[in-house]
């Protein structure tokens, strides 16, 4: 059986990279005694997969990973135990049962992510909200995207699924996952270019809000938070009662 765990990452823990977050949670599993399944062989590994890495420096309210369990655990209990084993900067928000099919795990179904982008003071001109509207009204936004092997020009406009101005910040919903992926700093980089300003990723604070699966049919997009695809386990933990 499988479980999906949602967590948030904030404060000093923004400086812990993705690989170290994975290692961190492997240790949390042991400290919290979560009955996680292992692969076989000489050096068995936990069956654990993260939806999408979060860059260093970013905070998030919507990080996910899926695990395979050897026995069911009550959601409330699991969340409490995991938080007990966590540190300031990482908080487990939910622990839900998800369907067993392989194609339903976080990494495979991930289709979008939303962010809150906040410019540092005086980085952008005062009318940036207006200018951002203009920027996104362009039929295409072509940028140079670095891939592992080469650079290629891509149009990122279709990968921006939604946006709105929220006071001093900007809400962005973009494509995420293995098929199409757009990081918010690329959008801001393009925006700075559009404004004729020099780009520096340190000028904005990025906060991931949520990650989504596309549950739409017949080509219509319907983004649903990954968490919504799971159900809380409401079992009473017999083992604990008998202890």
């Amino acid at each position: 059986m499988k479980a999906r765990i949602k967590f948030r990452k904030y404060g000093a823990l923004r400086f812990i990279g993705h690989l170290d977050v994975m290692r961190f949670f492997q240790k949390v599993m042991r400290r919290a005694d979560i009955p996680i399944a292992f692969t076989g062989g000489y050096s068995p590994h936990m069956v654990i997969s993260f939806a999408s890495p979060l860059g260093i420096g970013l905070s998030s309210d919507g990080e996910y990973f899926d695990i395979e369990l050897t026995e069911a655990v009550a959601s409330r209990d699991a969340v409490a135990r995991m938080n007990e084993a966590c540190v300031e900067g990482i908080e487990v928000l939910s622990f839900r049962k998800i369907p067993d099919e392989k194609k339903m795990t976080g990494m495979t179904i991930l289709a979008g992510a939303s962010y809150l982008v906040t410019p540092e003071e005086e980085v952008l001109p005062e009318d940036w909200r207006e200018r951002f509207r203009e920027f996104l009204s362009q039929p295409e936004i072509r940028i140079l995207k670095q891939t592992k092997r080469s650079e290629k020009e891509v149009d990122i406009r279709p990968l921006i699924y939604g946006w709105e101005i929220r006071e001093d910040s900007l809400y962005l919903q973009t494509a995420a996952g293995s098929a199409e992926n757009l990081k918010p700093d690329l959008v801001m980089h393009a925006f700075l270019n559009f404004l004729g300003l020099k780009g520096d990723p340190g000028l904005f604070r990025y906060h991931r809000l949520e990650m989504y699966a596309d549950m739409g049919e017949d080509g219509a997009r319907r983004l649903v938070p990954l968490e919504a695809l799971g159900k809380d386990w409401e079992i009473t933990n017999e083992k604990e009662d008998s202890d």
Binding site: A12, L13, F15, I16, G17, D20, I56, G57, V87, E88, G89, G202
Partner: peptide, 13 residues
Amino acid sequence: LLKVEKPARYIGG
């Protein structure tokens, strides 16, 4: 912290 190698060396916690 964003500039240096392995910022986790310096944050404690």
